[in-house]
Nucleic acid binder design. Structure first.
Lengths: 331, 331
DNA sequence: GTGAAAGCGCTAACAG
DNA sequence: CTGTTAGCGCTTTCAC
């Protein structure tokens, strides 16, 4: 069997309470006894039993993370940020993915909540009422979605979309296509709105080409509509769509960026591997993850209300080769 | 406070043991009492306290998964397979990634092991002795690595490499480059060996072009060496390398597959999005994940020894556009 | 500063 | 088939 507190206590010739204290509240134990205890604990290879500990304290030392889809390269980066910070804070990360299914999301919240001290929900798809219902009683932080009364890490999606439109405008584009993401997605709406506002402000024609799944296939499927829209540039909801679009257009023999400029969103790894490398908006995924953990810890410590929202994290346009000065009409 | 067993027992007018039994060994309780208990439990919103339960049973209901790097698209698919099966078996998945750092791997094994019923180690990088040491006392299954005495899910890496070489041979290639993966990687060695044996058997010249990191950048860096090797085809350790290679060669104006045929390994999602779409060897990632859970459950049930190894999972060549009949010398 | 004692919520003998 | 009785390993009053 494993070494228990009692074993250490016996070996160090003190009571179990003293050993317990030496481990969790070192300042409340005499320095010399503490040294002796810590030493024997190490010698015996003592490892506290988390189950027993949390049975009393109610704390688990675990942090739950729920993402819609790990095979979407967006999320592993967020998770990496979360894990890094969680690890620093001596928290173990418990990760689950919902497979993009809101019902699974609800189930997983229910399953995970009792096993963790707090929950980070990335790209939660659940309607706000269901969400509020599911997380009631748990410390929760939303990433890339904000709802009144729930803590969140917001990212400046609208600002990113604005930068994309401004960039294209600066390059001389005056008629720009918008490929929007799913209407159910919070960030999709923010990005579309941001693009619309920027276009209006600059006097640019924004043609709404369509609404598609945020995937490679979604992008391929919308290529025809993009061509039909007769635009000189396109901004899309995310990089996956953009790469699918590029792929299909490539098949049609459309030269990018000579004949069409294209801007993605997220700056996932593949964005730089595309032909041509994608101009896109960097989404601070790791930072968002780290911040989510900090926010959660504040919440647990009672140091902040779920309500008061900090500034959204900035997004940043990364210019690569998929955008160019608008010439197709002038040549 | 939360509803406890005792609350349910009181409300249903039975003892706590009966409630406990009704929940965990339903057949040992009278059908009618059981119905009543289950009913009141539901009505009261009873949720068993896992900490208390596992304090006694020693079981946690958790399954630990350790991967080297979630941002490598290979692993999320394995994890998806694991999660799917684990969920069916009412196990929660606890996931951690090591960031490709063997020390972190050791730490994580130590941290996770006491919180889970069993551990699935994907692409473990730890030397065999350290590994055996770290996992002693835990139920463990290795994915894509096998070590004597440890249970594992093996995949036929050598067979995949053989198929790749045979394919190129069939297309007329007689001088083929091999870009190997890191020497520390078990599967990298298996793939290289498989390719060598196949080449020898077919009388094909296999030119060892180099050993690189299994990444996009690794592939880019090896492009010059590939050209210098004067081969008509290349097989690489994995798709990431292959895509990097393609990318750089593209920049050089080398036409693929007209001037050089290229075969990857893994069939990650991006493989079909590459220009041209990659001929590659499909690695059954989800299947491997599912099987790992089954294996682990067998282990826990004492139904199989860690020693007896089942057949490795088959790999399968997927032919796409990055390979073609060898003409560059004949035209 | 340290020890004794009382549980946390649950399961597992053991009787009945 | 059901209840009683002991704890699992740990933390936390409360005395000393």
């Amino acid at each position: 069997m494993a070494v228990t507190l009692a074993d250490v206590a016996r070996a160090a010739e003190v009571s179990t309470s003293t050993v317990s204290r030496a481990l969790t509240q070192p300042e409340r134990v005499d320095e010399r006894t503490r040294a002796r205890i810590l030493d024997t604990a190490r010698r015996l290879g003592y490892r506290p039993n988390r189950a027993a500990r949390s049975l009393i304290t109610g704390r688990t030392g675990n942090l739950g993370v729920i993402v819609p889809d790990l095979t979407n390269p967006f999320f592993p980066d967020v998770v990496a940020g979360i894990q890094a910070r969680a690890h620093q804070r001596a928290l173990t990360t418990l990760l689950a993915d919902t497979g993009d299914d809101p019902d699974a999301e609800r189930d997983l919240i229910a399953t995970l909540a009792p096993q963790v001290d707090g929950l980070v929900l990335c790209g939660a798809r659940l309607p706000v009422d269901d969400l509020a219902d599911a997380v009631s009683g748990s410390a929760v932080v939303l990433v890339n979605r904000s709802e009144p009364g729930l803590a969140s890490v917001a990212v400046d999606n609208a600002g990113g979309a604005r930068q994309a439109v401004e960039h294209l405008h600066a390059l001389g584009h005056r008629r720009i296509g918008l490929v929007a993401g799913p209407a159910t997605s919070h960030s999709a709406r923010e990005r579309s709105d941001g693009a619309r506002r920027a276009a209006a402000a600059l006097g640019v024609d924004l043609v709404e080409v369509g609404t598609v799944a945020p995937t490679f296939d979604g992008g391929r499927g919308v290529a025809d509509a993009v061509l039909r829209a007769d635009v000189s540039a396109v901004v899309a909801y995310n990089d996956a769509i953009t790469i699918g679009l590029l792929h299909r257009l490539h098949g049609y023999g459309v030269r990018i960026p000579a004949e069409l400029s294209v801007v993605g969103f997220d700056d996932i790894q593949i964005a730089q591997m595309a032909h041509p490398p994608l101009t896109t908006v960097r989404f601070p995924r790791r930072e968002a993850g780290r911040l989510a953990v900090d926010r959660l810890l504040d919440l647990l410590a009672g140091e902040r209300d779920p309500g008061d929202e900090p500034e959204p994290l900035p997004t940043e346009l990364v210019v690569r080769a998929s955008t160019a000065v608008h010439r197709s009409r002038t040549t």
